[in-house]
C-alpha cells in the first residue's frame, strides 16, 4: 500500500533522502574509522623507535635544511654567567673528556641559585623544576641531523686548543645559546685542513 501506490516523483524523493542518509552514514563511519585508525597508529608509533621522518613535511624541511631556532624553557643567560667570571668548563664539565659537552642538572644550578638572584622570574622557574624533582627540558641547539651521520667528539677538539667560540660564536653576547655558526661540512673541513688534521670521511662519518 504504502509502497506500490506511490508515483514516480515520490520514488525519486525517497531515493534522494536515502542517498543523503547513506552519504551521511558513510561520512560518520569514515570519521569513526579514521579515529580508530589514528588511535591504532598513534599507539604503536609511540612504542617504536625509527629513524623515519614522522611526516612528509618534516622530511621536506630537513631536505631544504630548514631548522627553526629552538625555544628554551628558561631564558638562561650565558652573557651574565660569563661576565661574572665563570668558565665554560665549569658547567660543561664533559667537554674535554668525551663526545658530549654535557649540560649540568638543575641540582648543579641550585648550588648557587638557592641564594643568588632567587627573586628573578627565570630562577623561580628553575626552582620550580627543582622542587618538582624534574630536569629542565633544554632543547638541543646544535647537534647534527641524524641523516648527516656525523659523530662529533668534543674532547679531541678541546685538547687541540680549538676555541669554543669557533663553533659556538661569542657566548659572552648570547643569552640562551643560538645557532651562531653554520656547521656545514665545508666549515669542518676548512678548519681540519688548516690544522693539518685528517679529512678522511670516516674521521667523522660512521
Amino acid at each position: 500500500m504504502l509502497f506500490y501506490r506511490r508515483n514516480f516523483k515520490s520514488w525519486i524523493r525517497i531515493a534522494v533522502v536515502m542517498g543523503i542518509a547513506g552519504l551521511a552514514g558513510l561520512v560518520v563511519e569514515h570519521g569513526l574509522a579514521a579515529q580508530d585508525q589514528s588511535a591504532a597508529t598513534a599507539a604503536p608509533e609511540s612504542q617504536v623507535f625509527t629513524p623515519a621522518h614522522p611526516t612528509v613535511w618534516s622530511a621536506v624541511q630537513e631536505f631544504f635544511n630548514y631548522r627553526p631556532q629552538p625555544v628554551q624553557p628558561i631564558q638562561f643567560t650565558h652573557k651574565v654567567h660569563l661576565a661574572n667570571g665563570l668558565q665554560c668548563v665549569m658547567c660543561h664539565v664533559g667537554v674535554d673528556q668525551g663526545p658530549d659537552a654535557r649540560i649540568p642538572s638543575d641540582n648543579f644550578c641550585m648550588t648557587c641559585h638557592r641564594v643568588i638572584a632567587t627573586d628573578k622570574p627565570e630562577i623561580k622557574k628553575l626552582t620550580a623544576y627543582f622542587n618538582r624533582g624534574e630536569d629542565v627540558p633544554w632543547q638541543r641547539v646544535y647537534g647534527f641531523l641524524p641523516s648527516a651521520h656525523v659523530k662529533f667528539n668534543h674532547a679531541p677538539h678541546i685538547r687541540a686548543g680549538v676555541d669554543c667560540s669557533k663553533c659556538h660564536g661569542d657566548m659572552t653576547k648570547q643569552t640562551v645559546a643560538v645557532r651562531a655558526v653554520d656547521h656545514t661540512m665545508g666549515f669542518c673541513i676548512e678548519c681540519h685542513q688548516q690544522r693539518n688534521v685528517s679529512v678522511d670521511c670516516v674521521t667523522c662519518h660512521y
Partner: peptide, 20 residues
Amino acid sequence: NPVWDKPLDLQLNPDVSVRS
C-alpha cells in the same frame, strides 16, 4: 626504515649512527 620496539632503542650504541 629500521624499527626498534621501545625501550629497546635505549640499547642503541650512541657511537654508531642509525641508518635509515
